[in-house]
Amino acid sequence: MRARQLWLRFEPYHDVTYFTPESRAATDALGCRGGWMGYFGMRAAPLGAASPELVSAVFYTFAPRMVARALPDAWAVASPAEFLATRLAGVDGALRRLLGDVDTPEIAEAAALGREAALAAPLGGRPLAAANRALPWPAEPHLELWHACTILREARGDGHVAALVAHGIGPCQALALYAREHSLDPAYMRTARGWTLQEWEAVAGLPGDLAAVESATDAAASAPWEALGTAGTSRFVELMTPLALRIASGNEAMRVNPMALDPVRELAVPGWNT
């Protein structure tokens, strides 16, 4: 689907937010105890000093106990505003390392197109997208592009959660289904999101139509690209593909991830709109 192929272009650019040495160093310097406290603090910060219950609800696939190990303690370490500044600093450092020259006409053009698409993303029922859209846009083009990718990413993720709920697929069940369909290690998937073996085994055999969920997710994520139009979307793809490949090739965290995301392999497949 075209929407998934677009996701493959902006997801790697967004992912430097959390899974890079620069990000970890920034949250460690802030005073976070471990990488997950930094992750939950940075990703939840647009919501304000959110409770673990709220974050568990909107992040969806994390076990509530895993979230509760980081929140609300993270808000005693630093305010949401400080987490937002910290994540932007980490992103800036990571992108400069992974991309080298970030002051290019291509990045500036991609930022303008990405911003136009992000501003067309529907916000109703999309709390993480709406919270990120409410933040100021960074001035530098490479960070403006990151902000656009973040809004687009969270808008798609919010829509995915809505599709899972509509199809009656619970948080742990969604991971179990995904692991089975993508031949991912169940133990890795379970521990990456904090579920116990007993919780996993209770849902591992339950049915669920993930193909229907993905179709609904793609449909719900189509509005930004319809607004951007065929020519604008094609140009965004053209500009983002080499950036995504460079980031994925240089970011060790992209090697193994719970999303079964392999941009280096998948972006090599021709036909972005098929």
Rank of each mutant, 00 (worst) to 15 (best):
R156D: 10
P138R: 04
V58K: 08
G125F: 15
A68L: 05
P21I: 03
E154F: 06
G93F: 14
R126N: 03
S222G: 14
A139K: 09
L47D: 08
A63S: 10
H160L: 09
W146N: 01
F59V: 11
A25T: 11
T217I: 10
R246Q: 15
D28Y: 12
H167L: 10
A220G: 11
F236Y: 05
R190K: 00
T191G: 04
P186V: 01
R97E: 11
P80V: 02
D73A: 15
A117Y: 00
R4W: 15
R69H: 14
M254I: 11
M189Q: 07
L228K: 02
E116M: 14
L206W: 14
R235H: 03
P136N: 12
D103S: 09
H14N: 00
R9L: 02
A81R: 05
D158G: 05
E181N: 05
E201Q: 13
N257K: 01
A117L: 02
F59H: 11
A111H: 05
S56Q: 10
A202V: 11
A108C: 11
S222D: 15
G168S: 00
P12V: 04
T150I: 05
R87M: 12
A260C: 07
A227R: 06
W36M: 12
E201K: 13
L197G: 14
P122F: 07
V77S: 01
F10I: 00
T27M: 01
